[in-house]
């Protein structure tokens, strides 16, 4: 129990190649399993991470992901930040639309990832890069979302 209430040490992994994506998925899976995530929550977390990390690689031109274990009372969770300094997203609303892709994807990565996580924050500016931060808790919390 090295974790101070709220957060513990963050891990930072590079996202620069397909091999990195595999590694990122594996590491996040391991962290989440260690925090006591059940199979469904774990699968949702890893799948969301897979989407966001691939966007970081494909559209952001590579970057990194920060993995931070969280604790709120007795509930544990994990925060993932996907950071790139690529071109940024010009039209966030459009990018978050189901089925929109500027490449040849299904256009479900961003919008789908948002549905898989408890908290979702997108910080982007044209020319300055993109950071997507998500939080997933080990269990689905009652609908009330703390406003921080």
């Amino acid at each position: 129990m090295t974790a101070a209430p709220g957060s513990a040490v963050a891990t930072c992994l590079p996202v620069g190649s397909d091999t990195d994506l595999t590694w990122v998925r594996q590491q996040i899976r391991q962290v989440a399993a260690g925090l006591g995530f059940g199979l469904v929550q774990l699968t949702k977390l890893v799948t969301a991470a897979s989407e966001l990390a691939r966007n970081t690689l494909v559209y952001g031109g590579g970057g990194h992901v920060e993995i931070t274990p969280l604790e709120r009372g007795t509930i544990r969770g994990v925060r993932l930040s996907f950071v790139d300094s690529g071109p940024g997203i010009h039209d966030v609303e459009l990018a978050m639309t189901d089925g929109y892709t500027s490449g040849d994807g299904l256009g479900l990565g961003l919008s789908g990832a948002r549905r898989l996580v408890h908290e979702f924050e997108l910080d982007t500016a044209p020319g300055r890069g993109t950071t997507v931060t998500v939080v997933v808790w080990t269990a689905d919390l009652p609908a009330a979302r703390p406003g921080e």
Binding site: V40, T43, K44, T47, E51, D98, L106, L108, S111, G112, A113, R115, L116
Partner: peptide, 8 residues
């Protein structure tokens, strides 16, 4: 379940 949430 995950596929459904993703919207696939």
């Amino acid at each position: 379940q995950t596929i459904v949430h993703l919207g696939i």
